[in-house]
Amino acid sequence: MSIEACAGLVQRGDPDRFLAVMAAPLDARAQLLPLYAFNLEVARAPWVTQEPLIAEMRLQWWRDVVENAASGAAQAHEVAGPLHELIRDFGLPVAALDRLIAARRWDIHRDPHAGPEALAEYLEDTGAGLMWLAARALGAPDGAETAVRAYGWASAAAGYLRAVPELEARGRQPLPQGMGAQDLARLGLERLAEARAARRAVPKAIAPALLAGWQAEGLLRQVVAGRSAPELSEAQRRWRLLWQAFTGRW
């Protein structure tokens, strides 16, 4: 139930977000780590079993955890306990948490997204929603939501494109009919530009919540340039993360 347990989970299962947290100020980590551990638990639920019904049950358990946060149930769980405290102490929007979980039902099945709009909604509810929740946990005002969500969507699109080869290897159809990888990457860059245009509404205090998107622009530009398996070099990764953490700019 400790922050250390959440940190261990994120370090093993989501190393890029773990690096982003480690680049954040110490006082922000207690809010970010439980959220990222929760996201990891939900994201991997559809993949730890071949039985769709069991995967559905795992996701429903998390939906129940979020819905009943005020009751103090599941406090003994190493992630649910700290998540309950975040919801209680920082007023995290339960609806956004629930949509994040519900969106992962797509990962259970092998059907493609119904269309570009369905994929856009998936990215909105997962990546954009998570970044907004992280920002709220650090005290983001309502006026920052548009910019934060746009940046989160761009980051989610970059991560999704990075995962396309693995999803295809697992027999999934990650891109809907009529949408290519470059189309999605261009949309991601458009959302990134929208986020930056509204940057003045985002207080510097919540910059640690945006560190998770440090690779987004580089990955998106690689896909637009025609690279099917985008990946930044280790030097690029280090430089981009250090620059964003030091300057607070994104």
Rank of each mutant, 00 (worst) to 15 (best):
A43C: 03
W61L: 06
I54G: 05
W61S: 07
R17E: 08
W153A: 10
V148A: 08
W132D: 07
S2Q: 08
P82H: 00
A163V: 12
A140E: 04
V66T: 03
E41S: 01
N39P: 09
L83V: 03
F38L: 00
L210G: 00
P82Q: 04
L167W: 15
Q222D: 04
A169K: 14
A103P: 00
D142S: 10
P165D: 11
N39M: 09
V48S: 06
A28V: 06
A201Q: 15
A216S: 02
P203A: 05
N39I: 11
Q31M: 12
F18A: 15
P165G: 03
A163I: 10
A76S: 10
P93A: 02
M131Q: 08
P25M: 04
Q75T: 12
A102I: 05
V164L: 07
P165Q: 11
P112N: 06
G152D: 05
R99M: 12
L92C: 01
I87R: 02
S2R: 09
G218E: 06
R63Y: 09
A163K: 12
P46Q: 09
A96D: 14
W239T: 14
D107S: 06
D125M: 13
A69M: 06
A193Q: 11
W153P: 00
R63T: 07
G115I: 13
A181C: 08
A185V: 07
A140P: 02
C6N: 06
W153N: 09
W214M: 07
A209T: 04
Y36Q: 11
A128S: 09
V66E: 05
R88T: 09
H113T: 12
V42W: 01
L175C: 02
A154E: 06
R110G: 13
G226Q: 02
R186K: 11
P230H: 05
A74T: 11
I206K: 07
A70Y: 08
A201N: 14
E78K: 11
P174E: 05
G139R: 06
L241A: 06
L219W: 00
I206M: 02
G129I: 09
G8F: 10
S233Q: 10
A74G: 07
A23P: 00
L167G: 10
L32R: 05
A95L: 13
T247K: 07
P116D: 15
P116W: 13
Q60C: 11
K204L: 15
Q60R: 12
E124D: 14
M131C: 10
H84A: 13
D64I: 08
G127Q: 00
R99A: 12
R240L: 13
Q75V: 13
T146D: 11
P93S: 07
H77K: 00
P176T: 10
Q222F: 08
F90K: 15
G226I: 01
A245M: 07
